[in-house]
């Protein structure tokens, strides 16, 4: 069946599906009217129980830490899968990929922005459990800094500063650190991923016990994963540049 007939066939089905979904969605309580018991409890007690002021981050790294462990390992597996798929079929690296000449203005401006981006990423991670932010968001910002490295310098600078072996190890160790902490707590006789470190005083960086540690482990893993994904796709992109064969 070609695409055109399929699209036409889908129209009545899509309409029926939309009606079906709307019938179900209409059963939800009115927009903005009620809040469930789970949310009410955590909104009221999370800061008191864990001395962190960003409640979603406390849920991500403490109340539902197992979810985050799963999400982080999905991230890890996806990046491994992408690397596996793209690396296995790429021709040998022997020909040195050349670069587009970037204009001087772009080079200077972006090279100024790189330290700012890295700082922003680290700030987003570190203050993740006090103000909006966290390991996930900050990790992607740090990953973006590696991309800007390519925009400013060139592919060779990017490759020099992000050796795949090291980034692989950083990502694996970030994920292993997260689970390792959980296992250590388990070995110490508590529940897996329980928050047993001193909670510190609310509103300061030294608060939240294991939330801060898991936050940084996630930040490391997500930034390494993002750098790896950009690196793999950059290698694909560089293949297309003219003169990729000769230097």
């Amino acid at each position: 069946m070609n695409t055109r007939t399929r699209a036409l066939l889908f129209l009545p089905l899509g309409a029926a599906l939309a009606a079906f979904l709307l019938w179900g969605l209409a059963g939800l309580p009115d927009f903005g009217s009620t809040q469930g018991p789970y949310a009410r409890y955590l909104a009221r007690h999370a800061t008191a129980q864990r001395h962190v002021t960003n409640v979603p981050t406390s849920i991500v790294f403490d109340y539902r830490a197992l979810d985050t462990l799963g999400e982080e390992l999905i991230l890890f597996t996806c990046v491994m899968g992408t690397a596996l798929l793209l690396r296995s079929s790429r021709e040998a690296e022997e020909q040195r990929p050349s670069d587009r000449p970037t204009s001087a203005a772009q080079r200077h401006l972006v090279s100024l922005l790189i330290p700012v981006t890295v700082l922003l990423g680290l700030w987003t991670i570190s203050y993740g459990y006090l103000t909006p932010g966290g390991g996930f968001q900050g990790g992607v910002v740090c990953g973006a800094a590696a991309l800007m490295l390519w925009a400013a310098g060139g592919y060779r600078d990017h490759r020099a500063l992000t050796p795949t072996g090291l980034v692989d190890a950083a990502e694996g160790l970030g994920a292993a650190a997260y689970i390792g902490l959980g296992l250590a707590v388990l070995a110490a006789g508590h529940a897996f991923l329980a928050n047993v470190l001193p909670l510190g005083s609310t509103g300061t960086l030294a608060s939240g016990g294991t939330i801060a540690v898991l936050n940084w482990a996630t930040g490391l893993e997500v930034s390494a994963a993002t750098v790896l994904v950009f690196h793999e796709f950059l290698k694909e992109y560089v293949q297309t540049l003219p003169g990729a064969a000769e230097d």
Partner: peptide
């Protein structure tokens, strides 16, 4: 509700 935000922010990344 903080719970839905916790679920969504990891899903987006």
């Amino acid at each position: 509700d903080p719970v839905v935000q916790a679920l969504t922010l990891t899903d987006v990344v």
